[in-house]
Design a protein around this nucleic acid. Structure first.
Lengths: 222, 222, 222, 222
DNA sequence: AATGAATGAGCCTTCATTCAT
DNA sequence: TATGAATGAAGGCTCATTCAT
């Protein structure tokens, strides 16, 4: 939740907004937040402009004063509730820690960020299955994570903290699993720590690594 | 339960079906399969009965001769394309193998089963976000997997092949990650082997473990 | 209820019907009787051929083997359950009685006949509001009653049993009121006797008739 | 309750309605009145929203802007054209007259009120045969009449104007018969006066009457 | 900024009827 | 006689969107 109170872009404007402008901004945000709720509960198609307007206690037409179309409203929802900023903060924090600690920080942080945006997450995932554009948004986030976290893991491999492995797999697994936990409503503990632990140490009892079992493994990563 | 059966002719009932019954069954399956396609492409709500009928080249009304409602058609799709039978076969096969082999068999098998049912997977996941009943179906499959695979892993822990750990985490991670690969259209190789390898052996380079069974836990996190 | 068991017209045919013909006749009557029920419960439009067939446990198409259309089925219902015969019997009986007795006999007889055909009555009245043809049927019955009963009353006027009055009013009032009782589910007693009494003697206290205020009431009837 | 009010302009609310509100009310009433016509001609089920909209020269969807459903439209029709207010006026008027005059006033008044609402009458009677809720409406009106008119008649009995009798029978007979006349399209004269006369004085010739009230009676019948 | 009347396309569903088997 | 697959025409209702006020 802990959501932006004003539109992120309009943050620090020079000119003091008139009360009329303030009202408009509030109304706009109100509509966006109602849309967030309804879109996530019923899907974008399932939610109706009529209902959004009704919950804001305004006429249907007013929604179209602020947004050109339902589609535009959806984009506004995504923009306003996007996870990019907090994600950047988290990554910076986690990357400064030793790997065994950083991975836990990362997991819990991602869980928190996703939890706070659970509604948005549902919307985007849901729509991504139908609309290629939404799929792009998702892939974009994935790519960003992959790049930054990938670099992080590669560093640690270089430093000998991690063995050489397919970091994409690790990253993808982590992200997807956490997402599933959030969506399913599972609490973070003890799942997250166990997950990170498994990723770090595996579940095999055998003396292990160097990893003999079958050296199918492979690839140093892409 | 029921599997595609490729063609209705392959049924071995006592009574030989009349050609009319055969035709009816074919029509029914045809409608189901068209629905599978359209539901997965556009979502259940996005797909229209009209379009389904059109693709089958029949009148709209005929769809309602075979199915009471769109909802009933959806259930028929799920029943016809459900993964239960092949899943049982796979589990039996995997469980007879040593763990390092069995887990790979399992992963590839699950990937294959999901791939073959990618459309159904999309439908169910998509609908599960809106309809609690669909969510139940999903949770049902998860529970079944958890039970059987959990038993499998527990056996291996008892036999000392695996260290004592939260098997639910392993299972969930495996299933969810594979599902995401299928949906995202990623090929199984080399992702799957790397994933299993990571789960078995971890990514940590540290000499480490034996990783004594339980002091694993941890938390250092934020 | 007490309904015809075979089609009234086909009563006494010379040739013994084959079992095939008997079966057909039974089926036909079964369909008619089911239609009677459903038409009266849900209206002709509200009842569906599908449901009629289902209650007879036959295929929809079979209904069209026996009746050309829903309309034809409706006519068959009316024909099979028509009140003409018993009405003739009743009138003959009532007319041979002195007026004070005959009018009670008539009222109770009409009540009984209508009661036994309550379903048909509902159907015809209901449809008469929409379809002119049905209205004709109704007006036909009314005309027949008016003629016969009118003649009866006129005779009694001529004989000095009744005062000269508008017999059409009396007849209409009697018929319509009884019909309303039947449809509303009111029992015949004591309403019918009171009604006939009122028609015969009025409600005015003024000098009046033989008829002392209160020993007026009730039954002499059959 | 609410009566046609002929035109919305005649409302005396505090706030002057804006022209848009006036237009909306007109449209609403227009739709109701068209529905009244069509419902009575073809039955509620037989009439289509499409046709109602077409006659108002508006889009189908607009009907649903004013009424939640066809059912709601039906209720609006009943409310707008209900007979309660004029019925109250009539009863007050009739009850202040001596019985022989009052009963004629009542009969003609009821005939007039029903005639003015012939369409509504047809609708309600028609629907009452299928829908229990409509039956309730009918029974409600009947109960109200029974109470008020019953009290009226009882008073007159107490005052010696009428003999003691079953007033429910008289009332029911009067109401039902008048209703049938209206529906059948029969003119009020001379039927109504003859009817009231018969109820008051009966048709029996026996010693009897001055039958003075007014010797309107007439006809020996057709 | 705000209203809400109005549109028009489309959707799910129902049903009487036909016809090959 | 009997079946039931198939048709085609509606029908009630919803909804995103527009626009005059």
């Amino acid at each position: 939740m802990a959501q932006p109170e004003t539109r992120p872009e309009s943050r620090d404007e020079r000119r003091t907004p008139t009360s009329r402008e303030q009202q408009a901004e509030q109304r706009r945000n109100q509509l966006i937040d109602i849309a967030l709720d309804l879109f996530s509960e019923k899907g974008v198609d399932g939610a109706t402009i009529k209902e959004i307007a009704a919950q804001a206690d305004v006429a249907q037409g007013l929604v179209y004063h602020y947004f050109d179309s339902k589609e535009a409203l959806l984009l506004a929802v995504i923009e306003r509730h996007g996870p990019f900023a907090p994600l950047r903060v988290l990554l910076a924090q986690a990357f400064s820690q030793p790997i065994h600690e950083g991975l836990h920080t990362l997991a819990h942080g991602v869980y928190r960020i996703m939890s706070e945006r659970k509604k948005l997450l549902r919307i985007v995932l849901h729509e991504a299955m139908l609309r290629p554009e939404m799929r792009q948004i998702l892939l974009g986030v994935r790519a960003q994570l992959m790049t930054t976290v990938g670099a992080y893991l590669d560093t640690r491999i270089a430093q000998g903290e991690l063995r050489s492995h397919n970091t994409e797999v690790t990253m993808h697994t982590l992200a997807v699993t956490i997402g599933s936990l959030v969506l399913a409503g599972f609490p973070p503990d003890p799942f997250l720590d166990d997950l990170v632990d498994t990723l770090l140490n595996g579940i095999s009892a055998v003396p292990t690594h160097g990893v003999q079992p079958d050296d199918t493994q492979t690839k140093t990563n892409a």
